[in-house]
Write a protein that binds this DNA or RNA. Structure first.
Length: 266
DNA sequence: ATGCCTTCGCCTCGAAGA
């Protein structure tokens, strides 16, 4: 089984790419569950019929223009939770569901963490509040669901090596110590960053700026992550970004990150 | 280079992203 996360930067624009990419991968290395961020669609405008016609189950929590999160799955979804309980937020940044996989229930929490704009700004304060609330929420999810995956755009590069140029990024937004502390607090719950379970090539990123030919020059950041509870981390066989979608015509600025989880029998 | 690109809205530029 493969689980993934992808910030599509408008599902309206990226739906054909998503369907094509899932179909192509299905022939060799199928993605079975994927969390999407920045759908930028209201629930009314969500292309549920197209996804269902292609055989996918889905849940979505969206709004106009900004944010919007979805889970798309080969298997049925249940116990849907929109937003962080007790955290009052108009912005649609969190959706969770239980996936009925052949290996038993898997809980997937899909998150689009606040960008934060600039260290010290109001949006930065909101980002730190969001991260604190997310930590408490994930503690409760972990207590209920042994097999928990938290996939999303965290808008945090966990370490200097997760940036193309630490001299440019260290201390700035996405790379400040309080943000990284917020990320480490999620790991401290008992979650593992799937990327760090394996030896990885240097300069492995998930986002590249549209400007200045960022992708061609590999001037990127690793800010999209899949966090796995202990049972899932123990069964994880590989974890890496798939760069193919970033090479599509009119691509998202993010590319999918995928973790392969072994079945109990294999 | 405080730049570069891409998205959306009611809009032909501004705001936001990261």
């Amino acid at each position: 089984m493969r689980i993934a996360t992808w910030n599509v930067n408008s599902l309206k624009v990226r739906l054909p790419q998503l369907l094509d990419w899932l179909a192509v991968r299905a022939e060799s290395a199928p993605v079975d569950v994927i969390g999407l961020q920045e759908t930028k669609l209201t629930d009314e405008a969500f292309p549920g019929a197209e996804l269902a016609a292609a055989g996918w189950h889905w849940v979505h929590a969206g709004q106009k223009t900004y944010n919007g999160v979805a889970i798309v799955s080969r298997w049925p979804l249940s116990e849907v939770q929109v937003g962080i309980p007790g955290f009052d937020d108009e912005q649609k940044r969190v959706i969770a569901a239980t996936v009925a996989t052949p290996d038993g229930p898997l809980r997937y929490v899909c998150v689009y963490v606040v960008n934060g704009q600039a260290v010290g700004s109001d949006k930065y304060a909101y980002k730190l509040r969001f991260l604190a609330a997310l930590r408490d929420y994930l503690a409760a999810e972990l207590a209920q669901h042994p097999k928990l995956a938290v996939g999303g755009d965290y808008n945090i590069a966990p370490s200097p090596s997760d940036t193309h140029d630490p001299a440019v990024w260290e201390g700035n937004i996405l790379c400040s110590e309080p943000e990284r502390e917020g990320f480490r607090a999620l790991l401290a719950l008992g979650l593992r960053d799937a990327f760090t379970l394996f030896e990885q090539p240097p300069n492995s990123f998930t986002w590249w700026d549209y400007r200045a030919a960022g992708f061609r020059r590999n001037l990127g950041l690793r800010i999209d992550h899949l966090l796995l509870s202990a049972p899932l981390a123990a069964a994880c066989r590989s974890a890496s970004a798939d760069l193919a979608p970033r090479k599509f015509e009119r691509p998202s600025d993010h590319t999918p990150f995928i973790a392969e989880i072994a079945s109990p029998s294999s």
